[in-house]
């Protein structure tokens, strides 16, 4: 079995407004999707629905693992998702290494890797001294650390310079090449080959 994500007839209603309706999406290992659309079109809501935070008004989301297990329940999907939110979840009081070590142990993932993300010289710097771009790199390093196969990225390019953006693209490309799936809500192209899904203002 290959890793796959199936979204069927998904409907999202927020505060009496239908954001999207009857959404279908089938992805298998290696796929990349960029979610496009204006603010308030439901990009973040779709990501949160896939991750199991939000209950869909109708429809199903199913993650199929390589072992052939279908994860349809929100709580189960949550255990299969790698998340890069638009906040960085960086604590000002903890050093870069402390934060990565903590999340690595919480997720039961592998060893902390700093080098590829340009974080090696910052290992002992507390979060409060990091620039917005450096925090983003820390978040990206953490995402890799979780070892999850389905990545959900909310505005991954925000606050990044050209080198940072290239790093995101490269990391996502490597993840997909290794058999993962990535869905990114973005305003600008990520520079990764794949599908694009446009959520319009209904």
């Amino acid at each position: 079995m290959t890793f796959a994500l199936d979204i069927d007839k998904l409907t999202c209603i927020r505060g009496h407004r239908v954001l999207f309706e009857g959404l279908r999406l089938s992805l298998s290992a290696g796929a990349f999707v960029s979610l496009e659309g204006p603010n308030g079109a439901g990009k973040t809501s779709l990501l949160r629905m896939i991750a199991g935070f939000l209950m869909p008004a109708a429809g199903t989301v199913c993650i199929r693992t390589e072992a052939g297990v279908a994860l349809t329940d929100g709580e189960d999907r949550a255990r299969a998702v790698g998340w890069l939110g638009h906040q960085d979840a960086v604590k000002p009081q903890l050093t870069v290494r402390e934060q990565l070590t903590f999340w690595g142990q919480l997720y039961g993932g592998g060893a902390v890797v700093l080098g590829p993300f340009g974080l090696a010289p910052l290992a002992d710097v507390p979060g409060q001294f990091l620039s917005a771009g450096q925090k983003r790199r820390l978040a990206l390093a953490r995402l890799t650390l979780t070892g999850r196969k389905l990545w959900l990225l909310d505005e991954p390019l925000a606050a990044l310079d050209a080198a940072g953006k290239a790093l995101v693209a490269e990391t996502v490309r490597a993840h997909c090449a290794a058999g993962g799936i990535a869905i990114a809500a973005t305003h600008e192209p990520l520079g990764v080959d794949g599908l694009s899904l446009h959520l319009g203002a209904a």
Binding site: A51, F53, A78, W83, K91, L106, R142
Partner: peptide, 16 residues
């Protein structure tokens, strides 16, 4: 504090 900076999302997705 963890809710505002997104840490709580990551905790909710963790094996815990």
């Amino acid at each position: 504090a963890d809710f505002e900076d997104g840490s709580l999302d990551l905790m909710a997705l963790s094996p815990l």
